[in-house]
Amino acid sequence: MRWTDKESYSLPVVLAIGLHVIILVGGSVGLVLGDDEPPAPKRPPIVNATIVDVSDTIIGKREAELRQAAAQAQQEAQKKAKEAARKKAEREALEKQRRQAQAAQKKREAAERKAEADRRALLEREKAEKARKAEAAKKKAQQEQAKKEKAQQEAEQKKRLEEKKRAEEEKRKRQEQERAKELERQRQLEAKAIAEAEEARRRQAEAEVQKAIAEEEAKQLRIEEGQAVQSISSLIMDRIASVWIRPPNARNGMKTKLRIGFLPSGEVSTVDVLESSGDSLFDQRAKDAVVKMGRVEELADVDYAIFERNFRQIELLFNPQDLRN
């Protein structure tokens, strides 16, 4: 058998490809079934490393081609995912058989090429170990880096959160403080307003009392003034009535209004007809009566303010009610 030939690379290639396929199929099956079934037992990292090593070291230039094939296989596998799943057991069995055959062949070949293989394996192991170590280191570094970064990030995040929290807390505190301040201010304002209102009320009450007193005084004054005005008015009325000689054609209901000006001495200064009765003689007799009344001496004794307010100028309404007609 040619492919068992020790010089030929065909067997490892086939093995590599087969391995790839299995991995891919298993991965995809695992991917496909991953949700339903317990995950497939993790392969020892060494296997993975070996395969990677093989592909890396042996395929070389044909990497793209291989990748393409792998993609094709993957596509196919994907296409035949269901079918593959269905024939899984069969294939696994076949696989097992093939592995047993391979294992047996390996035993033989291993024995045959033990030295070579060992040396090579050693070399490769060393190389792989080296790569693996480097990779692991790198990975570890990366992981650590990532971890570190993550930790840093988390720390930062935490810090940020804390800061944010602190800031928010501060803000909240500040706001609370402000709110409190505001409340205080409002309380103060209200208090002030209440105080002011109270003050205003008090002042008003006081003013009202003052006003009432003033009004009472004013009322008293008015009553006194009213009494003075009334007594002088009735005096004037009586005096004029006693000298008012109506013309014979005068009738009840005829009205003449005169405006009389008085001097503080009580003397009549002016007599004007404000509203005429329409009868010039009736008007004239009213005017005559005022002139005949003459000086009202009593006015001279009246308080000057009262005089000014009431008697500086008065109106006389001549309105006979006692006539026969």
């Binding site: 008015s233 004029i240 006693s242 009431n310 006692d322």
Partner: peptide
């Protein structure tokens, strides 16, 4: 304005 009304006169 003080208004004095005179409703009777002299029987004279």
């Amino acid at each position: 304005q003080l208004v004095i009304e005179i409703t009777s006169g002299a029987d004279q």
